[in-house]
Design a protein around this nucleic acid. Structure first.
Lengths: 343, 343
DNA sequence: TTGTACGCGTTATCAT
DNA sequence: ATGATAACGCGTACAA
């Protein structure tokens, strides 16, 4: 029962372990006949190489890790798919790791580098406010993709980033709503103590109001509830319902995620109001559900494909020694849909 | 640079490697003072143990692997969260692995067992039609949770399963629609060659029609398109649109997933028809989006919490030698919502 | 082309 | 309480 290892296979085939190893790894220096014999033996005995031993011994592995903060974000999930395709295309494989909100992604990255001899790391999501000394320990190239805020700008030359400008895009959407004639635009933001996208997008919202000559009114800022799952439709629904019951005057709501926007829309419609007739709604991200909701949700669509392509390109250029670190900001697209534009 | 290892730490502290190992693993046989000294040294030098070496040497690890087939299914994602909580509660950690549709989950499981000395495996999703000899190789206990069809019933005593009865639940929903007076109920199923839930739920649909004295009409079966992502809202939207354009008479559509149902609903509304007035729609799974869509979608809600609890309990009972394999079927709940019941 | 022997970083065993 | 040393399973330089 003690499962078979490379030695057993070697013994059974009457060859040395190195020959078996060569057969396994498609090494050129091996007789085709013996290779086939070995492979057949491996098949028959259900031999499976031990990855821990391989990782331990191997000097380098063509592996890129993708560390995703929080698994429930559909936008990040679709990003991983795109990234994986880009990475596979280059003959590398992907180690996908999910990081819980309370975990430290840098700690996990550090472990992974040792364990799997990674060639590079892609961080997806997360606020990424980390201690500089820890970051310095990471001696493999890494790219921050779609991260909320940025680490200490002091050592920007040690890593790359690919993202959209949250302030700018939130500004764009708010401005769009103002230009549509809305004087009372509410913002459905993250938790009140959020330091990540919630903070930056709120910032863009404020600037746009100002430039449109509208005074910021803190009563128009709706915060996510900490006791309900972050960015869930339910959270958007519950807080909007409470907001509507307060009777604050407003003709448009801008939510910092499409999921929140959907919950928000449901709450409005359920109250007997119409969307966009009574209240217009806008979201952020461009996830599939925003397109198929009824009414479809106006949103800021992040250019996922381009961002994935750029992320992979930057990372591999650095790996191949062909380029230095870069910080790319992508322009998102405002997709106008029914939730702000009649049906 | 050349990252520090346990030997370096031992040398720096003037102790043997085994003492360092003891400090790391909270071994009892160690002086508190030396332990603290070592831990401080580890901290200062940013030493991180190599997991590959640990896994290689360790006899056993308190790790359960969860293998999820396809990462985009929201129902499965919420199941992983529940399962992880159950497993952590028992002092074990989780290795979450995502399996692509074209990959073989058993192969990956076999690898993982060797690599990480797993104590158990939970398979989430997937059709699970595997060769018996391969399954037999898996010498750690495993549970199939929410799997579509079942492996060869011949050796049911070698594994456990937790699921809902797809035929029964599809029957229930179809019957509900018939009892509501619908004589022409369409089924939005999986791809035409599907052998998994698509097949079983279609089976339940047919039986319910029969028991309600309605003749099965193959023109009322809508299949997912293979060229669009499986179970996506877009797929539901596109095929429904095509279906409506054919002008086939029907007053209700039962989709085998909520995501498909949402795309379907959008297509109907967009065509100028009303839901449920002109056509009623029902889904399957009970994901969050079905609740917040407008109209909210009638669905079969799987009891995720109970299934997760049961899955963990069965697995740990077997690990502790306290019980044998079981095959549990859970009763799902038909949640009646606006999409079949007026607004 | 093939086999032998060593080392990867750690934990377990056995002395001390 | 601590240290030396043998595994764990594999890849690879080097010898044959």
């Amino acid at each position: 029962m003690g499962s078979v290892n490379i030695k057993d296979i070697a013994r059974m085939c009457g060859v040395g372990v190195s020959t078996v190893s060569r057969a396994l790894n498609d090494h050129p220096d091996i007789n085709q006949a013996t290779k086939e014999k070995i492979m057949r033996c491996i098949e028959e005995n259900n031999y499976i190489p031990n990855n821990s031993a391989r990782n331990l011994k191997r000097q380098e592995a063509k592996v890129i890790a993708i560390l995703v903060k929080g698994l429930s974000n559909m936008f990040l999930i679709s990003m991983t798919k795109l990234l994986e395709a880009e990475i596979n295309k280059r003959g590398y494989s992907v180690a996908l790791e999910r990081i819980k909100f309370e975990e430290d992604e840098v700690d996990i990255a550090l472990e992974l580098v040792k364990e799997k001899r990674l060639k590079g790391i892609i961080f997806l999501g997360g606020d990424f406010e980390h201690r500089v000394d820890k970051l310095k320990e990471l001696d493999v190239p890494f790219v921050l993709s779609t991260a909320g805020s940025k680490p200490d700008p002091i050592n920007k030359e040690n890593y790359s980033s690919v993202s959209v400008d949250d302030i700018h895009e939130a500004y764009r959407m708010t401005d769009y709503l103002c230009k549509k004639g809305h004087k009372r635009v509410a913002m459905l933001s993250a938790k009140s103590d959020d330091k990540s996208v919630g903070y930056w997008r709120l910032e863009g919202y404020k600037q746009a109001l100002k430039d449109n000559g509208i005074k910021f009114d803190k009563d128009l800022v709706i915060y996510m509830r900490p006791d309900i799952e972050d960015y869930s439709m339910k959270n958007g629904y519950v807080v909007t319902k409470e907001f509507l019951e307060k009777g604050v005057d407003c003709s448009a709501i801008f939510a910092i995620s499409d999921t929140l926007a959907i919950g928000c829309t449901r709450a409005i419609l359920e109250s007997g109001r119409s969307v966009p007739g009574d209240i217009a709604v806008a979201g952020f991200d461009g996830v599939e559900a925003s397109e198929f909701y009824y009414p479809s949700i106006t949103t800021i669509s992040q250019p996922a494909e381009e961002m994935a392509t750029a992320t992979a390109k930057i990372l591999f250029d650095i790996i191949k020694g062909k380029g230095g670190h870069q910080h790319l900001i992508f322009e998102a697209e405002l997709i106008e849909r029914e939730s702000t534009n009649g049906k």
